[in-house]
């Protein structure tokens, strides 16, 4: 199993609106490409006035083959690029981190 983390830092006061759009506009397409959403979190846990919030989404991919298939699908789907372009207006920072399980990790 492959895992990766998306860290999406949202401008102050915008996190709820961004989460709604993420759920509606991004997640269904990602799932159709073969990704499974493990979880989505917000940090800090409570929005602080005037301060940014980061959405952390963990995704899994079942195999190497599925990894490359979803990558090629995303590359050729203009909706994916359009989503991230639109999302830029809400985000001050974005990072995607690919993960390799440590030997003692319960999730592998």
């Amino acid at each position: 199993m492959f895992y990766f983390l998306d860290e999406l830092t949202v401008h102050p006061g915008k996190v709820q609106g961004f989460l709604a759009r993420y759920k509606e506009r991004y997640i269904p397409g990602a799932q159709a490409r073969g990704l499974t959403l493990v979880g989505t979190w917000v940090t800090p846990p409570v929005e602080v006035d005037g301060e940014p919030c980061t959405v952390v989404a963990m995704w899994s991919i079942p195999s190497e083959q599925a990894f490359w298939t979803q990558k090629h699908t995303a590359r050729n789907d203009p909706a994916v690029a359009a989503w991230w372009k639109e999302a830029r207006a809400s985000l001050s920072r974005r990072e995607r981190r690919y993960l390799n399980a440590a030997s003692f990790s319960p999730l592998r």
């Binding site: 492959f2 190497e64 990894f67 490359w68 990558k71 995303a74 590359r75 050729n76 994916v80 690029a81 991230w84 974005r94 990072e95 995607r96 690919y98 993960l99 390799n100």
Partner: peptide, 26 residues
């Protein structure tokens, strides 16, 4: 080659349409 973590986890990010730092044209 495809299955190496160095490939999919390090190098391929530069090609990844969903990675913010992609620099390789699709």
């Amino acid at each position: 080659y495809l299955d190496s973590p160095f490939h999919w986890g390090v190098v391929d990010r530069w090609f990844d349409p969903e990675w913010p730092m992609r620099i390789v044209a699709p």
